[in-house]
Simulated scan of single mutants.
Amino acid sequence: MSADPARPAPAPLAPGQLIARGVCRHLRDLGFACVEELVPTGGLRVDVMALGPRGEVWIVECKSSRADYTSDRKWQGYLDWCDRFFWAVGAEFPTDLLPAETGLILADGYGAEIVREAPEVRLAGARRKVVTQKFARHAALRLQALRDPVLSP
């Protein structure tokens, strides 16, 4: 089977994308379905949103460096869109920078480990419905775009 000339070869993954891949692999092992780069509301784009086997919603922000973390001014806005919020970083990241009241995942391109559980603050029913629908729509559009590269998510 020959390569599709209309579809360019994928670009190498950036450091944050490698961390996200490892996070998604680990969460899949825990029974979660994950999508990357989901927009829960205007002005916010989460790195990883995960939907658990009991309907729980986790958001994971992946940071590849101190500069990447310090430039993030929106992360507290993500708290209204999940039951648990985690940071995912590489082994060399200075984890003392991260707020103690958030979860912590150490990750690389191959896997991850939850080092600190995030506190649970359950979403209200109406918000959970909105988040679940956005998750489903995002995942379906991504799948459709894989099947038909002329489309975009």
Rank of each mutant, 00 (worst) to 15 (best):
T95A: 14
A107D: 01
I105R: 06
I114M: 03
G103E: 00
V115P: 01
D108Q: 03
G109I: 06
D108E: 08
A118M: 01
Y110S: 15
D108W: 02
V89G: 00
E117A: 13
F93N: 03
A112K: 05
R116P: 02
E92N: 12
L106S: 03
G109W: 05
E92L: 11
L106H: 07
P119T: 08
V115Q: 12
E117D: 15
I105T: 08
G111R: 06
G111W: 04
L106A: 01
L104P: 01
E92K: 14
E117V: 06
L106M: 08
L98E: 04
V115H: 09
L104R: 11
V89Q: 02
A107R: 00
A112E: 06
D108V: 00
G111Q: 07
G90E: 10
F93W: 07
Y110K: 10
L104N: 12
V89H: 02
G103M: 01
L98M: 05
V89Y: 01
E113C: 14
P99W: 11
V89T: 10
P99I: 04
V89W: 01
L104F: 12
F93S: 05
A100R: 11
E101N: 11
D96R: 07
G109R: 02
T102H: 07
V89D: 01
P119N: 12
A91D: 13
G90M: 04
L97R: 08
G103N: 01
E92V: 12
G109C: 05
I114K: 02
A118P: 01
T95H: 10
T102E: 05
P119W: 07
G90V: 04
E113F: 10
E92T: 15
T95V: 15
T95N: 12
R116I: 07
I105L: 10
P94M: 15
E117T: 09
L104I: 15
T102C: 14
G109D: 05
F93D: 04
G90Q: 10
A91W: 08
D108A: 00
A100M: 08
L106W: 04
P94N: 14
P99R: 07
